[in-house]
């Protein structure tokens, strides 16, 4: 059943797979309890996995002494999360399109494309080390032409 109340959570976790996995499960359980449907949850789950992987591996270079800071807001209308790492950031506009030419055969570089496809809002801070993601309730999965 959809909850009418607002849920917020702030936390700081180390850059380890175990910490990220546990937080990811907790966040998804909370979204499920608050009435998000399976398609929204699939989209949120994929975006979280990709965003956390970017923060831990690319941002914090998998250094467990570096932290990932998470600000979560769930309302009746939306799932809203910011994920910040302690890396030097990047320019998301400069990322090569993984669907073009030789990039299609590369083993990495699809995370941001998938986040863009599955979330309704994706924006970065100026430094490029904090991503803000929003999924509006009921928007479900992307429609592929």
């Amino acid at each position: 059943m959809q909850s009418e109340t607002v849920y917020t959570k702030s936390c700081v976790i180390p850059s380890t797979a175990a910490a990220v996995g546990q937080l990811c499960r907790e966040i998804l359980d909370t979204a499920r309890e608050r009435g998000f449907g399976e398609q929204d949850l699939f989209a949120i789950h994929l975006a979280l996995e990709e965003a956390f992987m970017n923060a831990v591996r690319h941002g914090n270079q998998s250094d467990p002494s570096k932290n990932v800071t998470v600000e979560l807001l769930i309302t009746p209308e939306k799932f809203d999360i910011s994920i910040a790492d302690q890396g030097c950031g990047f320019d998301p506009e400069a990322l090569p399109d993984p669907r073009q030419g030789e990039n299609l055969y590369k083993t990495e570089g699809r995370g941001v494309l998938l986040i863009r496809a599955y979330m309704d809002i994706i924006e970065y801070n100026t430094m490029g080390n904090c991503v803000h993601l929003v999924k509006f309730r009921g928007k479900g999965l992307p429609v592929i032409q």
Partner: peptide
């Protein structure tokens, strides 16, 4: 089908 969408979005359905 939900995973197939991931292949289509990334165009790996062509690879």
């Amino acid at each position: 089908p939900k995973i197939l969408e991931i292949f289509k979005i990334t165009r790996l359905d062509k690879v």
